[in-house]
Design a protein around this nucleic acid. Structure first.
Lengths: 339, 339
DNA sequence: CACGGCGCCTGAAACATTTCAAACACTCGA
DNA sequence: TCGAGTGTTTGAAATGTTTCAGGCGCCGTG
């Protein structure tokens, strides 16, 4: 219960009547110290309330025992599930996980990257605002392993993502199977690779089926949020009933939830008047008033795999970047099934 | 672009032809070094790609530039909004924020606390699994400022929370105003102080109004999750219509969303057949199919205040623990308003 | 008895930074 | 020309840990 600065190895050594090195050995290679001594040291540590100073250890070791994840958007539960997966893997490797949130702002992201480099983290996982940002390349150039999550930059970095083209395809395939002939694809901004690819998958399937291209409408949004989903719903309602899509594929679940809410609010029946498919399959999708059909990403697996990749890169002397691609899966629920 | 270990102050000094101390001064007190030298040093830093080693700085300084937040449940958006508030305050103080997630498990919480102590964080903010846990006291005993968020432990720690008794009161007051005469209070486990206090507030108001106590039913749940909300809904449906509550006050929004979903799914009209009030006012509450009336906690403010409190405790030589209490506010939406 | 080997422990060096007293080089005024 | 003062730079010490070569004492073997 000593006040003042917290006790150091030196204090413990003095209290136990041994040298610094012995105390260190008790902590790091207990097998080389005799049981009697070990016991004495351990007692001293407990008594003084010794807590190892991680900075000093790190300084000496040259590297930290920490991984970092820079999230794109803390308000999207999807990223928390990914984080959960990362944390599991980090725990297995006995590493701590530092979670940051860029809130989709490039300046915050850069700030976080900078701090993390100063901390000498072992590796970084990131869903970047822009996969081409020079900041990412900076990190890599310094030899810090970096893995993109839910984004891809072939050749440049390792990455873990889902096959978005396939995701778009199965979403629309499901809607066509349910008999829909006019479908809206909702998402944006178009600068997002994911949005482009999911749309592409949708279009591929559509043209393979020989369906008229003008019956697959792309409705761009400014962001992937609930609010934007609502506003897309209003735009949708403005289309004359004859030409209005009977189904919508949203590029993520937040958009889909917004759309769902707006549609119900204006008296539409789901799925009879409007069927909705989301993407990500976040927990709230299943819990929505009309449970949401969604294209599931294996969220936790994504995180786990990313963490393993970053550890692999950290361990290997020589390393070749890899792009891991997971297969998305359609989870059909009431928002597309009429009976 | 040197490979091998990353450049140190020494390397920069050599490159710029100055001493270690000068390089350090350029970083920490630029005003004392002549513009010419400063320029030379800065050029050398850029050229070598120098990144300050935070471990060494910390070791020397004796304290880190980091705050930590140990979240109780990463899947509840409420805590993310709190985290956001904390981060804002941390940014103002030029500190990094370390976010951990205990997932409501005491062992994970203890592990995190331990690691954070080893990191010598400046202070901790935590929504603990159990406010009475000896681990928390351990931290405090070591002189690390610690502030409870959304929990209270008078005398022991500083804390920031909302007046839960008042929150329960206004929720039920609102329902009574809407003409309801039989109300269910849903939440649990009862070991949660919050649940007890929100229930107490509800009962206080109920008895003040002279309403029959048996018409205010407490329905305990095993946890505060969407799934538990659904199951509470099923239990509610099992009550004979004559005696069934016409309104429910849920101890958080996740429960309320689960209940809402179950109720809609079984054909009830909200709010005509069942009115629902949640607690927390998370973002998804407003976005629910029937927008949810909720007792708003000033989530971001909570986080901000907690961070300020912890910084205050860190700065002050002498400190007396304080319990900050915020006032909750009812946000009425469609789930309780019939027109 | 001498000696190698073994088990256990010690002490010093190294890690990258900050701080601070002291040194240094000028300039100005007396 | 000297001294004081000012502005800038230096070098060494200190932070807490880990590692590693070496030392000490003891046992068993030759």
């Amino acid at each position: 219960m000593a006040i003042g600065r917290s006790p150091s190895v030196k204090d413990v050594a003095a209290a136990a009547g041994v040298s610094l090195g012995t105390v260190s050995n008790v902590m790091n290679r207990p097998e080389v110290v005799s049981p009697a001594t070990r016991d004495r040291v351990e007692r001293a540590m407990a008594e003084l309330g010794f807590v190892r100073n991680e900075s000093a250890r790190q300084l000496r070791a040259g590297t930290s025992r920490t991984l970092a994840y820079v999230m794109l958007d803390g308000s999207n539960p999807f990223f928390h599930d990914v984080a959960q997966g990362i944390e599991l893997a980090a725990e297995d490797a006995d590493l701590s996980l530092f979670i940051c949130n860029s809130n989709a702002r490039a300046d915050r992201e850069a700030l976080h990257l900078d701090r993390l480099m100063q901390q000498r983290v072992q590796g970084m996982l990131i869903t970047p605002v822009d996969p081409e940002s020079p900041h990412l390349a900076d990190v890599a150039r310094r030899g810090i392993p970096i893995v993109l999550v839910d984004r891809v930059a072939p050749g440049e970095f390792c990455s873990v993502a889902v096959d978005d083209v396939l995701g778009g395809r199965i979403a629309v395939e499901h809607l066509v199977e349910q008999g829909h002939e006019r479908v809206a694809v909702i998402g944006g901004p178009e600068s997002l690779g994911q949005v482009r690819e999911r749309l592409e998958g949708a279009r591929q399937f559509w043209s393979e089926q020989g369906l008229p291209p003008e019956d697959l409408t792309f409705m761009p949004t400014a962001a992937m949020t609930v609010a934007e989903g609502r506003s897309a719903g209003e735009r949708l309602a403005g289309i004359p009933a004859r030409r209005r899509p009977t189904a919508a594929f949203c590029a993520n679940d937040l958009l889909a939830l917004g759309l769902l809410q707006q549609a119900i609010g204006s008296g539409l029946r789901i799925p009879d008047d409007l069927a909705i498919v989301g993407f990500d399959d976040i927990e709230f999708a299943a819990a929505a008033a009309v449970p949401l059909t969604s294209v599931r990403q294996p969220r936790q697996e994504l995180g786990k795999a990313a963490a393993q990749l970053v550890l692999e890169e950290a361990a290997a002397a020589t390393h070749r970047h890899r792009q891991l691609t997971f297969t998305p899966e359609l989870v059909a629920r009431a928002s597309t099934r009429s009976h």
